[in-house]
């Protein structure tokens, strides 16, 4: 066995939705690997099964076939409670629309995952401060999300995703709601984190982000698209 285990390993992941007598296969056998410290992009148009894969990667949903290994452990058939624990400890979620709690301060927002991990208050505060500094918001701890710009909000969300030192960060269109400049800043922040050893999985429909990734996995109609990337856009 190789000493280095893949953070994420998908083996023949299938997902079929059943509505009445009709079976709708959405994922038809996905094999993918994300190594430690990698910056991987899953790119797919809408209808490609991207969202379903995101849910499975984020442990919000279970596959109907295949297996999902997280840090070498099969997590494809866990109970709801075990899934929640894994989401809490192993996965750092970043959403397109930030999903911050509007009534909580920056510091409190960052600390939410630590609340569910039963981290004591003193440690939470220290760690929130450290993370806020890391994403460049050390001076905004007491602010409410409504007092922040979109880019700053996403920085808070990134800090929140990092708070329990997860195995990897799962970002869903993190720049979808941001303008180009802010987008670039956020992507730069992701690169900075990645350079410091954070594993990042990003799911997007936007081929323009392709040059940022170490590895690109394209989805098409529920399968991995093996054709070379240049074929599709080739703008950059």
């Amino acid at each position: 066995m190789a000493p280095v285990v893949n953070i994420v390993e998908l083996r023949g992941i299938c997902k079929t939705y059943i509505s009445g007598d009709l079976q709708v296969p959405v994922l038809k056998g996905i094999d993918a690997k994300v190594g430690a410290g990698e910056f991987v992009g899953f790119i797919g148009t809408s209808g490609s099964g991207k969202s379903t894969l995101l849910n499975i990667l984020g442990m919000l949903d279970v596959p109907t076939g295949g297996s999902y290994l997280l840090e070498g452990v099969d997590v494809s058939c866990l109970s709801d409670s075990e899934q929640a624990t894994i989401r809490n400890r192993k996965i750092g979620f970043i959403f397109q629309s930030f999903n911050l709690f509007p009534h909580l301060s920056v510091e409190q927002n960052i600390a939410v995952p630590m609340l569910y991990a039963r981290v004591p208050g003193r440690v939470r505060r220290a760690r929130s401060l450290e993370l806020a500094k890391r994403v460049g918001l050390g001076h905004r701890l007491g602010h409410r999300p409504t007092q922040l710009s979109g880019g700053e909000c996403q920085r808070v969300a990134i800090a929140r995703a990092l708070s329990n030192q997860p195995a990897f960060i799962l970002a869903d269109e993190p720049t979808g709601n941001l303008d180009e400049n802010t987008s670039n800043e956020i992507m730069a922040l992701f690169h900075e984190l990645n350079n410091n050893g954070v594993t990042i999985v990003m799911v997007t429909h936007n081929p323009a982000l392709a040059p940022h990734y170490d590895k690109i996995i394209r989805l098409r109609d529920g399968r991995i698209d093996d054709r070379p990337f240049e074929w599709e856009g080739g703008k950059k």
Binding site: S81, N99, F101, V112, P113, Y116
Partner: peptide, 14 residues
């Protein structure tokens, strides 16, 4: 939305 976000961040049903 708050509930969904909390669940994604690791809140148990309980």
């Amino acid at each position: 939305k708050e509930i969904g976000t909390r669940r994604a961040l690791g809140a148990q049903k309980s």
